[in-house]
Design a protein around this nucleic acid. Structure first.
Lengths: 182, 182
DNA sequence: TGATAACATGTAAATATTTACATGATTTAA
DNA sequence: TTAAATCATGTAAATATTTACATGTTATCA
């Protein structure tokens, strides 16, 4: 089996929604999309050129201000076909999380090792931040029923991520409390 | 910042628990460790040699049966130091999940697109399988309080993974039901 | 006893991803 | 008005990861 080249489909998916520059795509990864995908600009720009060579997308140049050149990419019908094909492919095996909190915790054996408490306290902070961010985005984007219905996948993934963070935070705080009381 | 080289610390962490061959390490990734880490043997063997060159681990040869050579690796004190250092480093930013169910769902806009139901049905299957596996492992490994106390990190990450799968499955099934009823 | 699965260890090549190097334009706020 | 932040786009080099190629052993079961 060929390596997955997921970024390709992420780009096609985003371009199906709107024409975008490489920079726009990069910025999207710092919103809630960043919960499930990220790529650096040094990977995005070459991938866009590759997709254009494959005739899945095309580009147009726009001048912004006096001379700033922005390259907008647009999806072509072959790109939509490739995206739809991918969407219908069966799901892979579940991938490992590669989460560093989990990884580190696994290697600490003793109940009373101070490092467990340290890990929990850090983990609570970073997930609280994430939960707050995702909740705010939910409020911004999906207060109205119409918005929910019209970007239903987007709505569902946000809902799922918020539930996950909420559950995890509750667990982390519970365990942290019981670690401190023993 | 240097690239993370997480496999290095995973190997050190595992070798702190027991002496292991490369093959043993590979097999561990197909147990519950696989929930948060995996590497192929083609990455493990070279990494072991690299760690030996760095004097973080050493090896001994054992003959199994008539002539099957097995190379067991053992952690050295410099390896333990490196591991402990890593365990105390602050956590990174939370990494994107790269989960293909989420990714695909995000790109489907319409509430009634049949592909949403297909995705949910596939996702429920693979997570049910995972939940069953993790629950079985919990039973095998941590029925007794002593086992829980003596591999506390291991116990906690299993507990966390099971809670995650359980919550997620419930959500998936709820949403799936409501998708079918509308 | 012969096939098959699992044990066991490696290297090579391709792809994916990150970090570092590079450059210039525009907006915003002090 | 100038400094800083952000916009905008790229390439090069290093590292990480996967896939494919390669080989031989041992245990199990038919």
């Amino acid at each position: 089996m060929a390596k997955k080249n997921t970024l390709k489909y992420v780009i096609l998916g985003l371009l199906r929604q709107h024409d975008l520059t490489g920079y726009d795509i990069k910025k999207l990864f710092s919103c809630e999309i960043g919960d499930f995908w990220n790529s650096k600009h040094s990977q995005i720009y070459p991938e866009l050129k590759k997709l254009e060579e494959e005739h899945l997308i095309t580009s147009r140049m726009e001048i912004s201000g006096k001379k700033l050149e922005k390259t907008y990419y647009m999806i072509k019908s072959a790109g939509i076909d490739a995206l739809d094909k991918w969407l219908s492919d069966p799901l892979d095996e579940i991938q490992p999380t590669r989460d560093d909190f989990t990884l580190k915790l696994y290697f600490i054996d003793h109940r009373h090792d101070q490092r467990i408490k340290n890990l929990f306290s850090e983990e609570i902070l970073r997930h609280q931040k994430k939960f707050d961010y995702l909740s705010a985005r939910m409020g911004e984007l999906f207060s109205s029923r119409e918005n929910q219905e019209q970007n239903f996948g987007h709505y569902l993934i946000l809902k799922k991520a918020i539930l996950r963070e909420n559950t995890q935070l509750k667990w982390l705080k519970d365990e942290y409390r019981s670690l401190k009381n023993n």
